[in-house]
């Protein structure tokens, strides 16, 4: 699971010295940049921020779905959800590993999240009120994540691209199990159908916003595109998501909550109504329905786990292969 909350560029590009020219040439020849290679500071900082925010999103993303593990409607749904949430932890760990390869330690990355300095995907600041929300997250949020992530498997930074290959392989299970939940509810009783529609009504617009601000307002696109850490613009990815999801909603017999939605025969894409960007910035700014709960849950996990980390380190010191 993931999103492009921020593709912020830190600092200006470095001066045009020989190393920088060699770096640009590697990018032009579509060669990967690897951890020990020279890279401009701004590239390193931007990637560290992008990858670690992606990692934080995977970890915080475990919370809304984890909320339903004990209340899944059958044992099968429960083991599937457990496996999915475990995958999200795995995705977070692959990505922390990729971010660490740029020279920032794991603890620094985690503490940036806990202090509120680092961001994570805004979508996880919405609550999961019913079981149908678990279906909607898999179908829509993971569906959007796949569209965002597939191009990143070809990005210029080797460790990030390789982590993304693993993640994308696992992600399609996530989307299908979500669609399967929606399908079952949509074809169930009238109440179950209504529950599925309600979940779509609440998750549709936040999912559309996951691709970030419109291209006209996103100042980061150009540099990230040149660096090949982003391969398509926010609007291109958003259009792709809408085009592939609208027919799926029709097959489910559910209505997309957008009265302006219609197929445009000239552009061969769907036209949509206005996106409420005020809501997007309000939630990113810390005032979504669950921002405080999500961060508090991560702080509690870190603090409650401190004695375990210390005890394991002490055990390793006394009994590990390096013990004196």
């Amino acid at each position: 699971m993931y999103t492009s909350i921020s593709d912020g560029i830190e600092g200006a590009p470095d001066g045009g010295d020989a190393r920088e020219r060699a770096f640009d040439e590697r990018l032009d020849r579509a060669l990967k940049i690897e951890p020990p290679d020279w890279m401009p500071d701004a590239y390193r900082k931007t990637l560290t921020r992008q990858i670690s925010q992606h990692a934080h999103s995977e970890i915080v993303g475990m919370l809304p779905e984890g909320n339903w593990i004990t209340r899944a409607p059958s044992l099968q749904r429960k083991v599937i959800l457990l496996a999915k949430v475990q995958d999200e932890a795995g995705h977070g760990l692959y990505l922390y590993g990729a971010a660490e390869s740029l020279g920032t330690s794991r603890d620094e990355l985690v503490l940036a999240l806990l202090s509120g300095k680092a961001k994570y995907s805004s979508i996880f600041n919405y609550p999961t009120l019913t079981w149908a929300d678990v279906g909607a997250i898999g179908w829509l949020v993971d569906g959007a994540a796949i569209i965002n992530q597939i191009p990143i498997t070809r990005c210029s930074y080797g460790p990030y691209a390789r982590a993304m290959v693993r993640i994308c392989k696992e992600e399609s299970f996530h989307q299908r199990q979500g669609f399967d939940i929606m399908w079952t509810l949509a074809h169930g009783t009238a109440e179950q159908h209504a529950m599925a529609q309600d979940a779509l009504d609440r998750w549709w617009w936040p999912s559309v916003m996951m691709f970030g601000p419109p291209d006209s307002e996103s100042t980061h696109n150009v540099q990230s595109l040149r660096w090949k850490i982003k391969l398509f613009t926010n609007d291109e990815l958003r259009t792709k998501f809408i085009d592939q999801t609208v027919p799926q909603a029709e097959q489910l017999g559910l209505a997309i909550p957008d009265p302006d939605l219609r197929w445009n025969d000239e552009t061969k894409h769907y036209d949509i109504g206005p996106i409420d960007w005020d809501e997007f910035y309000r939630v990113i700014g810390g005032n979504g329905p669950c921002n405080k709960d999500r961060l508090q849950a991560r702080v509690d996990a870190w603090e409650d786990g401190a004695w375990v980390r210390e005890a394991a380190a002490e055990h390793a010191r006394k009994h590990g292969s390096d013990a004196a």
Binding site: L93, Y94, G97, E100, S101, S105, R106, D107, R162, A163, R166, A306, R309, E310, A312, A313, H315, A316, H319, G320, S321
Partner: peptide, 30 residues
Amino acid sequence: KKEWPQWEVFVRSEAGLAHKHVGSLHAADE
């Protein structure tokens, strides 16, 4: 506190093949 050391992970995908680097992780001991 000092963080757990980082380890590189190599996996043999099936009998007869070589171990291949797959990524890294943190752990207190082997």
